[in-house]
Computed example of a mutant assay.
Amino acid sequence: MRQPPQDSELGRLFGQFPRAGRVQWIGLRPARDVPMRAVDMVEAATGGGLAGDRYSGGSGKRGVTLIQAEHLPVIAALSGHAEIAPATFRRNLLVSGIPLVALKGRRFRIGEVLLEGTDACDPCSRMEAALGPGGYNAMRGMGGLCARILEGGAIRVSDEVVAE
């Protein structure tokens, strides 16, 4: 959905956030088909990706992937699990407290890094194997957000996530 004009009522609603979010976990995918590596801090490169991630030199539209912490228990329940570790979803950042869907098409900051939400991060067929039969559908609509890095810098666990 395109952003409505900022001076409209809907535009004002799109710009309202109840509070800042917070980075809960950071994971890197060093190579294809290898386990994620959890880190406390990572460097984000302008126009690229995260240092140590297999997509670090990518096109930029998918420089960082984020998933909503509040969705993990729902995905777990829908796929028949008591809980699911963040690394299972192969997203870089687990974020809580701010609705990621509302950051699509917007600029936002995580610590010193400026990002722009580019697209939904839909689940892939690997989720069927990771979560079991029906895992792909259990995750639909809750796969998170892809973002472009506009200004690089460090991202740390516990950094605030703030819409601009």
Rank of each mutant, 00 (worst) to 15 (best):
Cys124His: 01
Gly27Trp: 00
Ala82Ile: 10
Ile67Ala: 13
Val113His: 00
Ser125Cys: 08
Leu131Ala: 10
Gly15Ser: 15
Gly143Pro: 00
Leu145Lys: 09
Ala20His: 10
Phe89Asp: 08
Asp53Arg: 06
Arg91Ala: 13
Val39Asn: 05
Val23Phe: 04
Gly49Leu: 04
Ala44Met: 06
His71Arg: 08
Arg126Ser: 10
Ala154Gln: 14
Asp33Ser: 02
Ile149Cys: 04
Gly60Lys: 06
Leu28Cys: 05
Val64Glu: 05
Gly111Ser: 08
Arg32Pro: 11
Ala138Gln: 05
Leu78Trp: 05
Lys61Leu: 15
Gly58Thr: 09
Arg90Trp: 05
Gly153Phe: 05
Val42Asn: 10
Tyr136Thr: 12
Leu28Pro: 00
Ile84Gln: 10
Ser158Lys: 13
Phe108Trp: 01
Val157Met: 06
Gly48Lys: 01
Arg37Cys: 03
His81Phe: 02
Ala154Val: 15
Arg32Trp: 06
Leu50Thr: 12
Ala76Tyr: 04
Thr118Met: 09
Val161Tyr: 04
Ala130Arg: 12
Leu50Phe: 08
Ser96Arg: 02
Ser158Tyr: 11
Arg54Trp: 04
Ala154Asn: 12
Ala129Thr: 15
Gly134Gln: 08
Val42Cys: 03
Leu66Val: 08
Gly105Cys: 12
Gly60Ile: 12
Gly135Phe: 00
Ala147Gly: 09
Thr118Lys: 06
Val74Ser: 05
Glu128Asn: 00
Phe89Glu: 05
Ala51Ile: 13
Met142Phe: 04
Arg62Phe: 02
Asp40Arg: 15
Arg62Val: 06
Glu116Ala: 14
Gln24Met: 14
Ile155Gln: 03
Gly135Gln: 05
Arg29Gly: 10
Glu116His: 14
Gln24Val: 15
Cys146Val: 11
Leu78Arg: 11
Gln24Leu: 14
Arg90Phe: 05
Ile75Tyr: 04
Pro123Glu: 06
Glu83Tyr: 11
Phe89Asn: 09
His71Glu: 07
Arg22His: 11
Pro123Phe: 00
Leu114Lys: 02
Val39Trp: 02
Leu100Arg: 03
Leu145Ile: 09
Asp159Phe: 07
Gln68Tyr: 02
Val95Leu: 06
Arg37Ile: 07
